[in-house]
């Protein structure tokens, strides 16, 4: 049997969910027996490849690049998992949502700057009006709340998905 393909990425997140993914310890061996990680911060690939079976997406959708990557991942993956509270609820990145983007940037990069005040524009993606949960931008199939989700929960979800079953996280996981 051909190996399955896992793609991962982080949008507006802290990488904590990916750390938790690495924390599945020897569980990773069982996962890698069934699947290859073909895209993400843990591997070298430059482009989200075609035919990904499971996409693990960390982070809220906060800027144009996040949005594009989320859409690409969705278009090329069978199952999309919102991994962690930022992807599931907006979480910490969404704390800015009550503040208009211009005011926010000026507060941080002009009023708050001690050297070279000015809002950066070069090489940084444009912020969206609000940092939103993943499912406000693309269709999500599986939600794994937690900040970060426990390694065991991630392993459980991955194992179920790689066996072709729908994981039942039901009442096992909570926000925060």
């Amino acid at each position: 049997m051909d190996k399955l393909k896992i793609g991962t990425c982080w949008l507006d997140g802290c990488s904590g969910c990916h750390m938790s993914l690495l924390d599945i310890d020897e569980g990773i061996v069982a996962v890698l027996n069934k699947a290859d990680i073909v895209f993400g911060p843990l591997v070298d690939a430059q482009e989200w490849p075609d035919g990904v079976d499971v996409a693990l997406i960390e982070g809220a959708v906060s800027n144009q690049d996040d949005l594009k990557l989320a859409q690409t991942a969705r278009a090329h993956s069978k199952v999309v998992v919102a991994l962690g509270d930022c992807a599931v609820t907006g979480n910490v990145p969404s704390l800015r949502n009550g503040i208009p983007v211009r005011k926010l940037l000026e507060r941080v990069y002009v009023e708050g700057a001690t050297v070279r005040p000015g809002v950066p524009t070069d090489g940084v993606p444009t912020l969206l009006k609000q940092a939103e949960p993943l499912h406000s931008a693309i269709e999500v199939d599986v939600y794994v709340p937690g900040c970060p989700p426990k390694p065991n929960s991630i392993l459980l979800v991955l194992n179920e998905l790689l066996e072709g079953r729908e994981p039942d996280v039901g009442s096992k996981l909570r926000f925060g």
Partner: peptide, 17 residues
């Protein structure tokens, strides 16, 4: 929320200040 299996929220957040 956990007991009732609320793993995500289906409505747009209000984000009040």
């Amino acid at each position: 929320a956990q007991d009732h299996g609320v793993t995500h929220v289906r409505y747009p957040y209000n984000y009040p200040r």
